[in-house]
Simulated scan of single mutants.
Amino acid sequence: MEEAIQEQLLSLNRSFYITVAAHFDQTRQGWTPGLARLLQWVPPVPADRPLRVADVGCGNGRLAALLDTLGQPVEYTGVDGNATLLARAQDRAASLRHTRLHLIQADIARPDWTASLASSPGFDLVCCLATLQHMPGYNLRQRVMRDLARLTAPTGRLVVSSWQFLASDRLVARQLAWEQVGLTAADVETGDALLPWRQGALAVRYVHQIDAAEMECLAQDAGLVMVDHFRSDGKEGNLNLYALLVHRNAGHGGPANTPHTGTQSSAERP
């Protein structure tokens, strides 16, 4: 993808989240069945220190609230480019009993976004949920995946999720023509789409479907192995792909804990 087109789509999404941030926050108050299921992938850590977590694309920090239900000390670093959503994440801090928040405003599309994160000895768990899908161009997704891999401790785990909107006829029917933003289908990649938001405000965002095959390619390019994955969420029950990745030389770390249910929002749209 040409750099100018890539930047145009990134700008579109930055404007999207500025427009819908408050409404987006209201639709992300609980957690979906897929998010709740992620607790089985939380790695064990020594009893004398907290679990170190980086939530990249953290939005309003609801993952911190989910991790808090584990009842163990958690050092949570949330990264997001939107100031409004980070403020909503900070509002959660007072209600958390076991989780300490550290929030960073950074745009992961920028090459230097990891500069303000402590990366040594790395995070036990790095999550990038419904965020990599908004990076236009395979080369950019590849670079961000490599960044995520560097943040993950050698024996840590990386969880990435992606919206599988092409699996839904109703979502496919909602796609907008590229001409609405001055582009054509020839300017973008297979799996790219423009989708509207109509919950409290009208806005358009760019999204790319990272299916299991692309997820494996991105993992391989970053020196990672996809050791587990599942699909969950949405009206159809399969609209998000969740993938567990580990460093290639770290062995295949599987689920650590039993699933946890808690508060869910099963009809949520990504």
Rank of each mutant, 00 (worst) to 15 (best):
R269Q: 15
M1C: 08
V207M: 06
Y138C: 02
Y138F: 12
V207T: 05
N240C: 13
T99D: 08
Y76D: 10
S161D: 13
T99I: 00
P43N: 08
S232T: 13
R269C: 14
R110P: 03
A173R: 05
I104N: 02
Q209T: 09
G61P: 03
S11P: 07
C127G: 00
G137C: 03
G30P: 03
D221L: 00
V42E: 01
I18P: 07
P255E: 09
Q142F: 04
Q220Y: 05
L10Y: 11
I18Q: 13
A250G: 09
Q40L: 13
L9S: 14
Q142Y: 05
A118R: 07
Q133N: 15
I104D: 02
L117F: 08
G57V: 00
D107Q: 08
S119P: 06
T184I: 01
G57D: 01
M145R: 01
L85N: 03
V126Q: 03
R52T: 10
H23E: 00
D187E: 07
P196V: 09
S266D: 15
L38E: 06
D48I: 07
A212N: 06
G71C: 13
T261E: 15
A185G: 06
G156C: 04
Q8T: 05
S116K: 13
L151Y: 06
V227E: 01
R198I: 14
L132Y: 05
E189T: 03
L176C: 03
E7H: 14
V56K: 02
A222G: 10
L166R: 09
E214W: 03
V74F: 03
T263K: 14
L151K: 05
G122R: 08
S266Q: 13
G30F: 13
T27C: 05
P73E: 12
D80G: 04
G57F: 05
D221V: 01
Q90C: 14
G71T: 07
A118I: 10
V246Y: 00
R62A: 07
D169V: 15
G223D: 02
G191E: 02
T258V: 11
R62C: 03
M215K: 04
T77F: 03
Q264R: 15
A201K: 11
